[in-house]
């Protein structure tokens, strides 16, 4: 199982980075989302996959019985998923606003503020 997940994670990283290298804004965002999925799966796999009992101490037990699945990585992933959901929603809204005000989704055309002699700067 680890081997399969390792390939999946590697594939997600590769796809994410490839998408981020494209010029389109939307593809950039898809790339970012893929990166965060890859990181989540990486936490899941690195914290060991155990096909085993619940991490709950029974009524008549004093300690956890081995082997048990570690619940903490899942809590970490859940937090990370919530965060990346919010961030992705924001990034989508941002890209839509950007498209509205620049009329392009070509990242190569988004460098007016980097040019040394720029008088079109529009900040408040």
């Amino acid at each position: 199982m680890e081997i399969v997940l390792a390939f999946v994670i590697g594939g997600l990283y590769a796809a994410g980075i490839y998408m981020m290298l494209r010029r389109s804004l939307v593809k950039l965002l898809i790339g970012l989302a893929l990166l965060s999925h890859a990181a989540n799966l990486l936490i899941f796999t690195a914290a060991r996959l155990t096909r085993a009992g619940f991490p709950i101490i029974g009524m008549d037990q004093q300690a956890l019985e081995l082997p048990y699945a570690d619940p903490l990585p899942q809590a970490l992933i859940l937090t990370a998923i919530v965060i990346s959901f919010g961030v992705t929603a924001f990034a989508l809204a941002l890209s839509y606003r950007t498209y509205k005000s620049i009329h392009t989704d070509d990242l190569d055309k988004m460098k007016t503020t980097d040019e040394a002699d720029d008088s079109k700067e529009t900040s408040a």
Binding site: A38, I43, T45
Partner: peptide, 27 residues
């Protein structure tokens, strides 16, 4: 306006990438 949006896209992208790297390192 235009300048702020362009700045924000770059800032958001690179910081999210840093977060993804941080998260992977944590895992």
């Amino acid at each position: 306006g235009r300048g702020q949006m362009e700045g924000a896209i770059k800032y958001v992208t690179l910081n999210l990438m840093a977060s993804a790297v941080f998260l992977a390192a944590l895992g």
